[in-house]
Simulated assay, not measured.
Amino acid sequence: MKWGDWLIVSLFLIIGLSCMTMSATWMMGTNAISSYLHNLFHICLWGGVPITVAAVIYVMIRKWKNERNG
Results as ranks from 00 to 15, higher is better:
His38Asn: 13
Ser23Asp: 07
Ala54Arg: 09
Met1Arg: 08
Gly70Asn: 12
Ile43Val: 09
Ser35Asn: 11
Ala54Leu: 15
Trp46Gln: 12
Gly16Ala: 02
Ser34Thr: 11
Phe41His: 12
Leu7Val: 00
Arg68Trp: 10
Pro50Gly: 09
Ser23Lys: 13
Ser23Asn: 12
Leu40Ser: 11
Gly47Cys: 08
Arg62Trp: 13
Ala55Pro: 06
Leu13Ala: 08
Trp46Cys: 13
Ala32Asp: 12
Leu45Arg: 14
Trp64Lys: 10
Ser34Asp: 03
Pro50Met: 01
Thr21Pro: 15
His38Pro: 08
Thr25Val: 10
Trp46Ser: 11
Trp46Tyr: 15
Val53His: 06
Leu45His: 09
Tyr36Met: 03
Val59Lys: 10
Gly47His: 03
Ile33Thr: 09
Thr52Gln: 00
Lys2Leu: 09
Met27Arg: 15
Met1Leu: 11
Gly16Leu: 02
Ser10Glu: 12
Phe41Pro: 15
Met20Asn: 09
Ser34Ala: 03
Thr52Arg: 02
Tyr36Thr: 02
Ile33Val: 14
Thr25Ser: 14
Ile14Phe: 07
Ile8Glu: 01
Ile57Pro: 00
Arg68Asp: 15
Asn69Asp: 15
Lys2Ile: 06
Ala55Asn: 08
Ile43His: 06
Ala24Lys: 06
Thr21Lys: 00
Leu17Gly: 00
Trp6Ser: 12
Ser10Asn: 10
Met27Lys: 15
Asn66Gly: 00
Thr52Phe: 04
Val53Gln: 06
Gly4Pro: 04
Leu40Met: 14
Val49Ile: 09
Met27His: 15
Thr30Tyr: 04
Leu17Ser: 01
Met20Ser: 13
Met20Asp: 12
His42Glu: 03
Val9Arg: 12
Met1Ile: 07
Trp6Val: 00
Ile15Asn: 03
His42Leu: 07
Met28Asp: 08
Met22Ala: 02
Asn69Thr: 05
Ser35Tyr: 11
